[in-house]
């Protein structure tokens, strides 16, 4: 099986490894970097649980191969927590109980962060459309929308 030597900078830390070509990015993050906050829900790009930032853009970690991310900078949910980025969103998620089991949460936060940092408005329908690439089986989504609205209306960023 073909292998490749790659380096991916995850949350500021360069990780170098030899990986098979078929290894996807989220498996690299979980297995090589030991960062288990990014979750695998479907492995076919539908559920959004594995969403991470690659060079500043949200990406499905199961649809990108690790070799495609060679040289890239990746931010995971752990990286957000370490730097404090998105702390208002996390606080609002807790206040509104916008997570129950928490399995979708890393991906949901990544999508919410993209919306808020991208200047999204507090329009509930627009928020619902934006997060419709992320499955949540527990909450019914309303609390997630409430949390995002609160952060936007507070006006202090994510």
């Amino acid at each position: 099986m073909t292998t490749h030597d790659i380096t991916i900078t995850i949350n500021g830390e360069a990780i170098t490894a030899t990986v098979p070509a078929r290894r996807n990015l989220v498996d690299f993050i979980r297995q090589e970097a030991g960062l288990t906050g990014s979750h695998v829900g479907c492995e076919h790009g539908v559920c959004g649980a594995c969403t991470v930032e690659v060079n500043g853009t949200p990406v499905r970690g199961c649809l990108m191969l690790a070799v495609q991310a060679d040289g890239a900078h990746v931010t995971t949910v752990e990286g957000l927590a370490d730097t404090g980025r998105g702390h208002r969103l996390r606080a609002a998620f807790q206040t509104h109980n916008a997570l129950q089991c928490g399995f979708c949460t890393p991906g949901m936060l990544a999508s919410a962060l993209e919306y808020v940092e991208g200047g999204g408005t507090a329009d509930r329908t627009a928020i619902r459309e934006h997060i419709s690439g992320n499955y949540c089986r527990c909450t019914g989504y309303q609390a997630i929308v409430d949390a995002i609205v609160e952060v936007i209306e507070t006006g202090e960023g994510a």
Binding site: S38, V40, Q94, N97, F103, P106
Partner: peptide
């Protein structure tokens, strides 16, 4: 508020697949 949501929000959950 649920205290244990903090770890889930920070990527510190302990799901079965996280065990090595």
């Amino acid at each position: 508020p649920r205290a244990d949501t903090n770890r889930l929000l920070e990527g510190r959950g302990r799901f079965v697949d996280d065990i090595q």
